[in-house]
Structure formats: C-alpha cells, structure tokens
C-alpha cells in the first residue's frame, strides 16, 4: 500500500496545493514590512512604519510626489475599518437572532407552507451577489431611503440570516426532542426550557453561525458596493476604490491584521465546535 513514489507525489501535491492557496496571503504579509512607499514590489528594507502609522504613532515623511499619489488619508481608511466593524457587529446580532428563531420555529412547529418557507430561506444564499445587490439598491431607492450604514446592515442581514439559519437548523436536527420534553416534564415552561435547555444545546451552532456571519459581513464587497452611499463605506469597498488609483502601503498592514483576526476567529470557531455538548 505504501508506494514510496506515490507517497512522495501526494506530499508534493499537498505542498503545492497549500502554496497555491496561501501564497497571495504571504505576499501581502511580506509587503506590509517593505519600507518602499512608492513601489511595494521593490524591497527597500524592513519597517514597521505602516503598522505604527495605522495607529497614528508615526507620521512618515514622504516627498511631495509620493504624497500626491494618494488621495485617501490613513484616517479615512481607519474610518472605513470602524464602519466595517460597526456593520458586522449589528448584522451579526440581528442575523443570529432571526436565523436562530427561524430555525427553532421551523423545527418545532407545524404550519402550512413550512416546506416553502424552508426553500425560500435557502434562496438568498444561492442568489448571485450582484443580483441581490441590484435588487436591494432598487428597493431602497424605491422606498426613498438614503443609502447609509443602515442600508448596508439591512442588506447584509437579508442573506446572512439564511447562513445562520442553515447552521442552527443542522444542529437542531441532531437534537433529541426528548430533551425539551424532559424539561417540560420537570416543570419548566416553554420559555424556561428555551433558556435553560434549547439555547445552551444549540449554542455551538449559534456561535458558529454568528462567526460566519461576522466574517462574511466584514468581507462583503459586491452587495455592499451597491447599497453604500457616497459618504460612509466599509473597508472592502474602500480598498476596492483605492486599488484603482494605486495601493497605499498601509493597506498591506491592514490586510495582515485582518488575516490575523480571521485566523483567530476561525480558531475560536473550531474550538467551539469541538467542545461537545451532547
């Protein structure tokens, strides 16, 4: 079974595979330490300036030429990051509550059109982002709503609720209905059962759904692009706009920090999932 040649080929393949996936990330991390302010592809020495600059610790002196290359200030970039976090936190909260409530309702109550409802909840996940984006934009304009962070939050909630729903529903399906019956049998009202038995049992699913919603919300470009106004925008949209004019080196630093944050969140998610509550 242990054909050495096959084994070597398999090892090589997996190495290449991971290189393929992670190389772009490493490039960014590398660039974020490059002192060259104008052309990041030319290594000019190691610096932490882009990081310290992000937090307003140093103001790197640039010659007039390179300064002119950038329209956006670091402050604007940080504002975009703040907006992203703001949107993600609100979206995650709303989508998690709605997705969880829907998953519980669909699993525990029988009503007409249940199957249809189920199908409709899947749809926003499968819909191309661009369609959802245009749809939302037209919707907001029709209602006469000013595009703002609020419209971004509403837009994100429309599809992230579905993500949370799917994950919590899977957890719900694996739950022994006798647990809730045991709780009721021991004198707990439905509300107490929800609080003391159902939600703790669903917790890993709910946390997983919330983390996913948070990460997708932080990351979304297409839908946000349509529903964000001229003023406030999120980091992905901001970066996207910036690339067309030339990339400010701080971007690499921000990207590196975001990678770190994502890894931390993913690790947290895995840890929560591995904690068994059976």
């Amino acid at each position: 079974m242990r054909n050495p040649l096959g084994w070597a080929a398999l090892t090589l393949f997996s190495l290449l595979f991971f290189a393929f996936i992670y190389a772009p990330l490493f490039v960014i991390v590398g660039y974020s330490f490059n002192a060259n302010p104008v052309n990041m592809m030319i290594w000019e020495g190691f610096t932490l300036d882009w990081y310290t600059g992000l937090f307003g610790l140093t103001e790197r002196s640039m010659d007039a030429n390179s300064r002119a290359a950038y329209i956006e200030s670091t402050d604007q970039m940080l504002a975009a990051l703040r907006n992203s976090l703001f949107v993600a936190v609100f979206t995650t909260t709303i989508a998690t509550v709605m997705g969880t409530a829907t998953a519980i309702a669909l699993a525990r109550f029988r009503f007409r059109g249940r199957r249809l409802y189920d199908g409709f909840l899947m749809l926003p996940m499968m819909m191309p982002d661009i369609v959802l984006g245009i749809g939302l934009l037209i919707f907001f304009v029709t209602l006469g709503m000013q595009l703002s962070l609020l419209t971004i939050i509403i837009g994100h909630c429309t599809f992230l609720t579905s993500y949370v729903f799917i994950i919590v529903q899977a957890r719900m399906a694996g739950l022994d209905p006798a647990l809730e019956e045991a709780s009721a049998d021991l004198g707990a009202s439905e509300w107490v059962t929800l609080r003391k038995v159902l939600l703790p049992q669903l917790a890993p699913g709910i946390m997983g759904g919330a983390l996913l919603a948070f990460v997708i919300s932080m990351d979304d470009l297409v839908i946000t692009y349509f529903v964000s106004g001229t003023g406030d925008t999120t980091l992905p949209v901001f970066i996207f706009g910036m690339i067309r004019r030339g990339v400010k080196p701080e971007i690499n630093a921000i990207a590196t920090l975001l990678i770190l944050a994502s890894v931390a969140i993913a690790a947290l998610g895995l840890w929560l999932r591995s904690r068994k509550t059976d």
């Binding site: 022994d176 006798a178 647990l179 019956e181 045991a182 709780s183 049998d185 021991l186 004198g187 707990a188 107490v192 003391k196 038995v197 703790p200 049992q201 917790a203 068994k276 509550t277 059976d278």
Partner: peptide, 26 residues
C-alpha cells in the same frame, strides 16, 4: 407526574447534580 425517558434525555450541558436538581431549580 414525572417521566424517566427511554433515551434518558439527560441535559448534556449540565453537570449530573444540576440535571438532578433541575425540577427544583425551575
């Protein structure tokens, strides 16, 4: 009336003591 379920239906997220005391806790 209380029931002993065939599957036991113990609450996995609680300790044995809290499982046992659930009716009183409620």
């Amino acid at each position: 009336v209380n029931t002993v379920f065939q599957s036991y239906a113990l609450f996995g997220h609680m300790t044995v003591a809290r499982n046992v005391g659930y009716a009183l806790e409620v």
